[in-house]
Simulated assay, not measured.
Amino acid sequence: MKRYIALLLVVASAALAACNTVAGAGEDLSAGGHAVTNSAEKSK
């Protein structure tokens, strides 16, 4: 039973870390999109 709980904690920690990484990547892509949009607006 202790092994099962330990494994569950490891998996949960990995899932949370991956979630933060994906959220950060999404924010970076969003910032890049805003930069392209702003450049296009300035070029008009």
Rank of each mutant, 00 (worst) to 15 (best):
M1P: 05
M1D: 06
M1R: 05
M1Y: 00
M1V: 04
K2W: 01
K2C: 02
K2H: 01
I5E: 09
I5W: 00
I5P: 00
A6H: 01
A6M: 06
A6V: 02
L7M: 05
L7A: 06
L8M: 10
L9P: 00
L9I: 08
L9Q: 09
L9D: 07
L9C: 12
V10F: 01
V10D: 03
V11Y: 05
V11E: 05
V11H: 01
V11P: 02
V11M: 08
A12S: 09
S13L: 15
S13F: 06
S13M: 10
S13W: 00
A14F: 03
A14R: 01
L16H: 00
A17D: 03
A17C: 05
A17F: 05
A17R: 01
C19Y: 09
C19E: 07
C19H: 07
N20W: 13
N20R: 11
T21H: 04
T21R: 04
A23T: 10
A23K: 11
A23N: 10
G24Q: 04
G24C: 02
G24P: 03
G24V: 03
A25V: 09
A25H: 07
A25Y: 07
G26T: 01
G26S: 06
G26Q: 07
D28T: 09
D28V: 06
L29S: 07
L29T: 06
S30M: 09
S30G: 06
A31E: 12
A31S: 12
A31H: 08
G32K: 10
G32R: 08
G33W: 03
G33Q: 11
G33N: 14
H34R: 14
A35V: 15
A35D: 14
A35W: 12
A35F: 14
A35H: 13
A35E: 14
V36Y: 06
T37M: 15
T37R: 14
T37V: 13
N38H: 14
N38C: 09
N38E: 15
N38M: 14
N38K: 15
S39T: 13
S39V: 10
S39F: 13
A40W: 13
E41T: 14
E41W: 13
E41H: 12
S43Q: 15
K44W: 11
K44V: 09
K44E: 11
K44D: 12
K44M: 10
